[in-house]
Design a protein around this nucleic acid. Structure first.
Lengths: 191, 191
DNA sequence: GTTTACATGTAATCAGTTACATGATTAC
DNA sequence: GTAATCATGTAACTGATTACATGTAAAC
């Protein structure tokens, strides 16, 4: 149910379906993804519902593009989504479900390998977010608190991502240490 | 794709579809949810695929229950899911998408109200996780690091939840303070 | 010439939600 | 008697993924 509103949000300025996909890849990929095969039919439906209008036009490069604009009705729908308050309690975190059942591996070193892989993923993610932050900071002296509204709120989500992923790395390290400590205590008992 | 494996994980001990739903509500609701209308057909399909077997039996209370058991093949599928490493990059966090577009509210106090509502939700969530932790700690002297394997890993996910939600509350507080500071700077400029 | 990026879409399938239908047992 | 909990399911629909199909233009 959220994708429609996210697309409306992106259409603050006119964009093609392809542009919207690029926008997902550039900025929102950390908390939402969508494929072109979902975006194109959705844009068609949104046009039927009067939330957007479109115009086909030649592109400088490549084939003709269809560019979508948000209508006043579309703008109101977006505002009403935001005004209804945060959409919470719908997240699904598959890797936590895996951690929950890690005992079924019946092998400490496999469990540690799992946690280590998770740690590496989070660590890579952290570095890529830090790179984004550094680039932004060095390209715009207003970063972060003097940015224009739109960029300020986008920056808030980046900040949230940094916090989250940093916490995750630390938690993985801590978890690995605790699994190792259990392993040691067990081997002592056997000896 | 994960639900099948989560159900296999829960079937370490035999359970009915109804039990599985209870298990979701009790322990996994913080990172995965499933409705009975999804669970029942899935159990049927898993039985067709030889991952579980079932037996109908009378219940002490209420109507007859169908109890499912994980087969050896089911156990192997679970282990292979865990061995393939963490399933990452699939999360969708709707409230972050909302924060990203909060500028479209064109009103600081609405944006602050949004963030405040998010903060309250996270704070309530934190308190409920802390309550779970306190209860567990006072009921089992082995908590957390001397718990049996299964409980230890379940505990790890609780620990992760506590970390995450705590970070979220702090981030919301920080974000609200920054939005307020922007607001003040703007009003000074107007005066 | 071949790969990459641009650009738009459809079809089939899978995953998940909401609504509906049924009925037993227990607690108040 | 009536509400809550136990218990199992189906049907219709919405949301999301994977695979397929088509073609242009630029870069190497």
């Amino acid at each position: 149910m959220s994708l429609k509103y996210i697309v409306l949000g992106m259409l603050r300025k006119p964009h093609s379906g392809y542009d919207i996909k690029k926008h997902f890849e550039k900025s929102l990929e950390n908390f939402w993804r969508a494929e072109l095969s979902q975006i194109y039919p959705l844009l068609g439906k949104m046009q039927d519902d009067g939330l957007v209008t479109s115009k086909a036009g030649a592109s400088d490069i490549g084939p003709t593009r269809r560019v979508y604009k948000r209508t006043a009705k579309g703008g109101r729908e977006l505002v009403s989504w935001l005004s209804d308050g945060p959409v919470v309690g719908t997240e699904r975190i598959a890797y936590l479900a895996q951690v929950y059942f890690l005992a079924d591996l019946e092998c400490d070193s496999s469990a540690i390998a799992f946690m280590q892989e998770l740690r590496d993923y989070m660590s890579d993610w952290l570095h890529s977010l830090e790179a984004t932050q550094n680039e932004w900071r060095s390209n715009d002296p207003r970063y972060p608190d003097e940015l224009p509204e739109e960029d300020f709120y986008a920056q808030l989500t980046l900040d949230m991502g940094l916090n989250k992923v940093r916490t995750n790395v630390e938690w993985c390290d801590h978890a690995i240490a605790r699994i190792r400590a259990r392993e040691r205590r067990r081997s002592v008992r056997i000896v």
